[in-house]
Each structure stands twice: as structure tokens, then as C-alpha cells.
């Protein structure tokens, strides 16, 4: 068994940067999602667009949240 030191798949020094930009993207896309939901009537919205927007927001918010946790020292 040849053991080598284990490092994280992503360099921990990048966590704060990643957290910042992912959160910006996540908050931006979820804000757009909310605005879409609130300002437009459901008859003029397209379901596929809403779904894809929800998915993109979820991905950015999920990753952003996780990297924020890693940045502040909650090592998941």
C-alpha cells in the first residue's frame, strides 16, 4: 500500500472565492426567479423556463452554501 498525503479535490484556499461568486450567482438567479414568479401572471410564464431557472438557482445556492460553510470553518 503506497500511501500519499491526502489533499482536498479543491484547494481550500479557493473556498472563500468560490463561496463569494457562487453565492452572488445563486442570489442573482433566485432573485430573477422570484421576480418572474411575482410580476408575471402564471398564464404568460413558461413552465420549462421556470423549472430551469429553479434548477440553476438550486445548483448555485447549494454549492454557494456549501462553500460558505467550508469557508467559515464548518467542515462538512
Amino acid at each position: 500500500m503506497a500511501l500519499s498525503p491526502y489533499n482536498s479535490p479543491i484547494d481550500p484556499s479557493l473556498y472563500s472565492t468560490l463561496a463569494f461568486f457562487l453565492m452572488i450567482a445563486g442570489l442573482g438567479s433566485s432573485a430573477y426567479f422570484f421576480v418572474e414568479q411575482v410580476t408575471k401572471s402564471k398564464n404568460v410564464r413558461s413552465l420549462s423556463k421556470d423549472f430551469s431557472l429553479a434548477l440553476v438557482s438550486a445548483i448555485f445556492m447549494g454549492l454557494g452554501m456549501m462553500f460558505t460553510m467550508l469557508t467559515v470553518g464548518i467542515y462538512v
Binding site: 423549472f51 429553479a54 438557482s57 438550486a58
Partner: peptide, 16 residues
């Protein structure tokens, strides 16, 4: 990360 993403996905889908 998948767990975090699916948590948010559920949140947005409920809103939807």
C-alpha cells in the same frame, strides 16, 4: 454538495 443542491431544489419547486 448534492444534498445541499437538492435541498434548495425542493425549496424552489415548492415555491413554483
Amino acid at each position: 454538495p448534492l444534498l445541499a443542491i437538492s435541498g434548495w431544489a425542493v425549496f424552489f419547486l415548492v415555491l413554483l
